[in-house]
Design a protein around this nucleic acid. Structure first.
Lengths: 149, 149
DNA sequence: TGCTAATATTTAATATGTTAAGTTTTATAA
DNA sequence: TTATAAAACTTAACATATTAAATATTAGCA
């Protein structure tokens, strides 16, 4: 049951966007302090992680993978570059594209933080069970393909 | 399948927070233009909706229901009050609390926009089916109670 | 009663989200 | 080939997110 005494959900509990926000927020309350301890925001971390998992990518791809809009990404990579965690260089074949790459410092910090993040994720998985969480991810994946009408 | 050609999901597709963000974003791409047409942001709309569904509430309750942090809510209600959609008054019994209430203009705009929002939600429900979506909301509800380890 | 801790909200500072407009480079078609 | 549209980023402006600190008020207790 809900731990928040005197707080009851309104009918908005049937709202998918709010339900997703609430669930996401519950998890981030665990993840954020770990990232903050190392001086990273949630979004900066997503950028590093995506680059680590997929290797060098152009900004558009990173924006898509990390689910960050281009204008936000521009600022984020500006900071990550200044702090020397990533390097940025214009694509040789297409002058519009900007390629991003983790520096060695970036790879280092990534490997340093990842285990702490994994720990939390494992605790979540242990509590809710792999099956339920994979069902959740599957449905979320389907909904992600909603393209309005 | 994914409509984004040349864009493939990294391993972050297994990340629950990112999956929720992506799914939520897909839906909001449909909802936001409707709200924007009436000059409201997503968050302002959540505040109006919560007040409409639960009636007058103090700021803390609204913050919880709308899933908005207190500092953000302070500014949001500042604007909504200025625009005369809500009224704000200090609680008589507890001077720390601020009670919020929809004005008649607030109720009016709420009733005006709600049907458009419902329309989209119904389309989503029609596409994915009530059962799947209710499974989704159920699991999200469980995960929302995660309180760290 | 008076002191201190706890609450509820607000203010401040920095980072990101969102939409629109601006830049530079590439693709296209007349 | 060249004018024009499209693509990929960036910049700008305003709104929200996050954390910390400040304010004001109430609650608890010696």
């Amino acid at each position: 049951m809900n731990k928040e005494v005197n707080k009851t959900y309104p009918d908005t509990s049937k709202s998918l966007p709010i339900a997703m926000l609430r669930a996401r927020e519950a998890m981030m309350l665990s993840f954020r302090p770990v990232l903050a301890k190392h001086g990273f925001t949630e979004q900066q971390w997503r950028v590093l992680r995506v680059l680590g998992e997929k290797g060098d990518s152009d900004a558009g791809q990173v924006a898509f993978d990390a689910c960050i809009l281009a204008p936000s990404l521009s600022r984020i990579i500006g900071k990550l570059e200044k702090d020397q965690y990533i390097s940025r260089f214009v694509d040789a074949k297409d002058g519009r594209r900007v390629n991003l790459s983790l520096t060695s410092a970036g790879k280092e910090i990534l490997n340093k933080i990842a285990p702490d993040v994994e720990l939390i994720y494992n605790a979540i998985q242990k509590r809710y069970g792999e099956e339920k969480l994979s069902t959740l991810i599957d449905i979320l994946g389907e909904v992600s393909e909603w393209r309005g009408r």
